[in-house]
């Protein structure tokens, strides 16, 4: 454990505090592979919040999202040897989380009425709703705008927002879109959010 703390401080001392979670993840993974057991904790700390958002993009409730994130980590423990490029560890984890979230959504869809599902995606949780009230205007307008666009856009935007280098190849497969249309679709979805924001502003 002591090792981990020292390592984190070293990295911080090197002025890498502003590193993105994806860069921190590959740094930690390389360190772990070279024999620093504590670096695993850093990897998990850096990537768990990212995986959370990716999984929540699929509209899962908080408990299911937690389960999918945990399954992602356990899959990682089992198959990390298969990750050839350590720089790609974040992409590997994100892809694995997306697959898990999509599989879980297919199972859940059989059990849940559709309205419930879209509601989950559209509404913040009670605790976040409180945050919404406190933080007020600007971002809550953005939240409202995002909630008003279609589910497919919302999912794409949330996944892409938490991806390092959007991996269009695997995204296209998972979201059932041609590779060439992901960039334009993302742009269209962002335009929809802007339109909704503008409309909200006029009210």
């Amino acid at each position: 454990m002591g090792t981990m703390v020292t390592m984190s401080e070293d990295r911080r001392a090197e002025g890498q505090l502003d590193q993105s979670p994806w860069d921190m993840a590959s740094g930690a993974f390389i360190a772990w592979r070279s024999g620093e057991p504590g670096a695993m904790d850093e990897l998990v700390s850096a990537m768990t919040p990212v995986l959370w958002h990716v999984v929540r993009a699929y509209g899962h409730d908080r408990q299911s999202a937690e389960d999918v994130v945990q399954a992602t980590w356990l899959a990682f423990v089992r198959s990390h040897q298969t990750i050839k490029d350590p720089q790609a560890v974040a992409s590997w984890l994100i892809t694995s989380a997306r697959r898990g979230a999509a599989a879980h959504a297919r199972t859940a869809r059989r059990a849940l009425p559709v309205e419930d599902e879209s509601l989950h995606a559209a509404l913040p949780d009670t605790e976040s709703a409180e945050a919404l009230a406190v933080l007020g205007d600007e971002r809550s307008r953005l939240w409202g705008a995002v909630a008003s666009v279609d589910e497919r856009c919302r999912k794409l935007l949330r996944v892409v927002a938490f991806m390092d280098r959007p991996d269009y190849q695997s995204l296209s497969k998972d979201l059932d879109m041609p590779v060439g249309s992901i960039g334009p679709t993302r742009a269209r979805c962002l335009a929809k959010v802007r339109t909704a924001l503008a409309k909200g502003g006029e009210r």
Binding site: T48, P49, W52, H53, R56, V69, P124, D125, S128, A131, L132, L135, R139, L142, W143, V146, L157, R158, V160, A161, F162, L190, V193, R194
Partner: peptide, 15 residues
């Protein structure tokens, strides 16, 4: 805008 969205989700729907 994408970055603003990321901040929004980070704030409103934290793990």
């Amino acid at each position: 805008l994408l970055e603003e969205l990321r901040d929004m989700w980070t704030t409103y729907d934290p793990p």
